[in-house]
Design a protein around this nucleic acid. Structure first.
Length: 497
DNA sequence: CGTCCACTTTCTAAAAAGTGGACGGTGCGTTAGT
């Protein structure tokens, strides 16, 4: 079948969006693909169509359960009814029933962690898969090394599944992240489709402060003046909560905070209110944003510098999905970098802790290495990291490790930690350099992502004398507040269709 | 490194100032027994 015919039949569209067709073609001819496409290009369509035309099943690895639930709903609405997500939202009996009837599903969403479950694994292995999809594939590099190490094991399950065609999709990946993806998914021969990460409708502004007290006033002025809705990122949970209480005191009621320390239902509520335009501003840590597809976000303020350029680009990329002019504003003070610096220095165990965990001290002889991890006083992320590597070495539940192996492990782990720290510090220095450099902010980002520089644009960035003033004005918001909620609902429906 | 909190010290009786130390960001899974 012609691809265009299938597109028309299943979606009613006449033309593919840039990048879609080439990837579908590669998939159909049996090639692995690494696709970097800007958000809103319709990445989902690629593997929906791919699976349909291959007359097979797709296993889709997705990073967040909330995102998975949304995707399953969207698939069903789009007519792909045989779709399911395997995650902790399922209770015991539902899970058993889904696993038992797994062959009846065409699209199965999973987290990297649940792939470790032996029942899930054996159910998956008992049927044929045409596509192995890794959505938000930059997570392999961004989270896999320490925070969610099971991201590094995806190649193992892929092989067990008989090496179905592998499709890795992301919106932002530096050359280094692309390499990580291809290495850890063992798809070195993959066809690579990289599209520019440039978002011409987002103007980029950096403002430096030498007095930290002035930053809050500036942020409040911006929030007052800028056309919303907007997102403001802070470094810490407490910082987000405090800023919101200041804004509430000043009479701004349509503002809430969001961070990973909140209860699931509270997070969901805030997110829904924001998506429904009941909130004009969300003040949050980097927990907020992935999978958020609100088209009309007009600005993203960074109240602190983020820890790396990739994270920054992902965060500002949430603005202006509707292609309308939008602003990214970073309010920088040198002390911003202290929090990320702290995390880099302390999230992984230091040499003493490694020595302690792998020691032959008599006092520890009664404890397995797993138990020693809690005793060593390392961070939760550090524990995850160590659990993963000690388990791979087959010693996690041992009380005693032969001396030779012990010394080798110490050496390997210390080296690995040292490398990770070095890389992260390099990223931190890189964003600091980007902030301080007075050249074109956009071209520096393009260069960082391995792209060619572009000719000067209008309203490009603070390095190119862009003017923030044109993003001021609150007209639309005032009109919105007079809408009856029924009208608002209708408007949202129309927007989605 | 800076901030916040609990606790102690100050010095003289109620509250302020000092000190030590813990903490700081991302998420999956969890299947025990009222």
């Amino acid at each position: 079948m012609q691809l265009e015919t299938a597109l028309k039949q299943y979606y009613g569209f006449n033309n593919f969006r840039p990048g879609q067709k080439e990837i579908v073609e590669d998939i159909l001819s049996g090639h692995d693909v690494l696709g970097m496409l800007p958000t809103g290009t319709g990445k989902t369509l690629i593997y929906q169509l791919g699976a349909v035309l291959l007359k097979g099943r797709a296993l889709i690895v997705s990073p967040l359960v909330s995102l998975m639930q949304d995707q399953v709903d969207q698939f069903k609405q789009a007519g792909f009814k045989r779709t399911v997500a395997l995650n902790s939202f399922l209770d015991h009996s539902d899970k058993r029933s889904v696993l038992h009837h797994l062959k009846d599903y065409q699209f199965v969403f999973v987290s990297p962690e649940i792939l470790q479950n032996k029942y899930v694994r054996s159910a998956l292995l008992s049927i044929d898969w045409s596509l192995f999809v890794v959505d938000e594939a930059h997570c392999i590099s961004q989270w896999g090394h320490e925070f969610r190490p099971h991201y590094l094991d995806l190649a193992i399950i892929k092989k067990e599944l008989g090496n179905p065609v592998c499709l890795a999709l992301t919106a932002t990946a530096t050359v280094k992240v692309q390499e990580d993806i291809r290495n850890y998914l063992e798809m070195r021969d993959a066809k690579v489709h990289i599209h520019s990460m440039n978002r011409p409708n987002i103007s980029i502004f950096v403002e430096s402060f030498s007095q930290i007290e002035k930053k809050q006033d500036r942020a409040i002025d911006l929030i007052n003046d800028l056309q919303g809705p907007g997102i403001l990122y802070t470094n810490t949970r407490k910082g987000a909560e405090q800023l919101v209480s200041v804004l509430h005191e000043r009479g701004m009621q349509d503002v809430s905070y969001y961070h990973g320390g909140m209860e699931q239902d509270e997070r969901l509520l805030v997110q829904k209110q924001f998506l429904n335009s009941q909130l004009q501003l969300i003040v949050c840590t980097n927990a907020f944003g992935m999978g958020i597809n609100k088209p009309d976000i007009r600005y993203v303020i960074h109240y602190h510098a983020p820890a790396n350029v990739e994270g920054y680009v992902q965060e500002i990329g949430r603005a202006g999905r509707d292609m309308q002019p939008s602003a990214a504003i970073l309010l920088y003070h040198p002390s911003d970098l202290e929090v990320p610096f702290h995390f880099i220095e302390h999230e992984l165990p230091d040499d003493n802790q490694i020595d302690y965990i792998l020691s032959d001290y008599e006092a520890l002889a009664e404890h397995t290495l797993f138990e020693r991890l809690q005793l060593a006083g390392i961070s939760e992320t550090g524990q995850r990291f160590m659990e993963y590597h000690l388990n791979n070495a087959g010693v996690l539940f041992e009380k005693c490790v032969p001396e030779e192996k012990r010394e080798l492990l110490k050496k390997i782990l210390k080296k690995k930690i040292e490398e990770r720290k070095r890389e992260k510090l390099k990223s931190l220095r890189m964003i600091e350099k980007w902030i301080m450099d007075e050249g074109c902010k956009r071209n520096m980002l393009l260069k960082y992502f391995g792209e060619e520089e572009i000719a000067a644009m209008d309203e490009c960035c603070s390095g190119c004398q862009g003017e923030l003033v044109r993003f001021y004005g609150k007209q639309e918001k005032e009109i919105n507040t007079y809408h009856e909620w029924e009208d608002e609902l209708k408007r949202l429906f129309r927007q989605e269709v």
